[in-house]
């Protein structure tokens, strides 16, 4: 049932790493925007905080997902952790997105 870990192909690791760094850099960018007070001026502080929180969960999920090619599977507790963190993150991101759309229009 459990696959023995094996060295994953470089391309898989690179693509997984790219997604992780995309989310991480967006998280940092969103945090910087929040810290500089640009969102407060537009009365979007709460929504943006929700967005940052979602990005944090997404980053954690993608970090966990980095180990998927090495394990050659995503099942069981590893899958639970990765997917539930992603579910939480995406829920917060999409909720913030929806509220932003409402605020701006």
């Amino acid at each position: 049932m459990i696959p023995t870990p094996a060295p994953a192909p470089l391309l898989n690791l690179l693509v997984h790493g790219a997604v992780f760094f995309l989310v991480l850099s967006t998280f940092i960018a969103a945090a910087v925007v929040w810290y500089t007070g640009k969102v407060k001026a537009r009365h979007m502080g709460g929504v943006w905080r929700m967005f940052i929180f979602g990005l944090f969960f997404y980053t954690v999920s993608e970090f966990s997902d980095l180990f998927t090619p090495g394990l050659r599977a995503s099942l069981g507790m590893h899958n639970y952790f990765t997917e539930f963190a992603l579910l939480t993150g995406l829920s917060l991101i999409f909720l913030a997105l929806r509220r932003m759309v409402i605020i701006q229009d």
Partner: peptide, 22 residues
């Protein structure tokens, strides 16, 4: 009956996710 894992499908999944989220 056994663990299914395809490196090609894994790459496809991640590339689509990268593009979508970007």
């Amino acid at each position: 009956q056994s663990v299914f894992f395809s490196y090609n499908l894994d790459i496809t999944t991640e590339v689509l996710q990268f593009l979508g989220m970007a």
